[in-house]
Amino acid sequence: MTGVELPPIALQQASDWAFVWENSGYLFAGTALTIALTVASVLLGFFVGFPAGVVEVYGGRASRGLVETVGVVLRGTPIVVILIFMYFVFPTPDLTIGVLGVTASLSGAFLAGVLGLGLRSAAYQSQIFRGALQSVDEGQMEAARSIGMDKLASIRHVVVPQALRRSVPGFQNEVTIVLKDTSVVFAIGLAELLTRSYDLFVVRTTAVLEILLFASAIYFVLTFTTNRALDLVSARYAIPGGESA
């Protein structure tokens, strides 16, 4: 076989790493998008999913039925379909927001990404919180009602504080899953970390491994730090002596 003379393997790897390094700015920009999508989607998922979980446990028949149905649909639909639906079927307009003199422009694609990932995460988070709420002993609710607290106050002051503490492990999983699922926004034209990695190794096929290692390291750092941070929150709010009452 004649043709291109490949450099010795070690040299080639060194130059592939150099290629990664040269394009690290491009990958870090993708990382920023990954982080922005994850944070926004997890927050949206929390602020929608938490009340949804409460309704699933304590709601009336009609509201419970509605929330459960929406949840089943969202969890049963492939995320790419949800995103495309958000972007093409219900196009989200570009948005410029100004807070305290700082303005930010959010593209329609970004907003569609957050809506899609966030609402789907809400559907999963609602199940985390539903399970946690149901795991709180019924006696807690009864004791609260027995001193004259109404249902809402009992949920708020007695059940929710205990349920939130038990939700941390499930929530950690969910953050990790959303973080990795942000890559599907390529379907609506956004290029986050993984899409950009793909773009790079298409250009330089010998660097596939190096680029993927680099991207994986970033994912690992992100996952590890969020999990550690949530561990710390969990430890900070742990009930002294445990949860028995």
């Binding site: 109404d150 007695v158 009930i239």
Partner: peptide, 20 residues
């Protein structure tokens, strides 16, 4: 019922203290 319950205290067999 909430008005009633503030006038009637209850003590439970398994305590049911608010764990948090």
């Amino acid at each position: 019922v909430n008005e009633l319950r503030r006038q009637v205290g209850m003590v439970f067999q398994d305590f049911n203290l608010f764990a948090h």
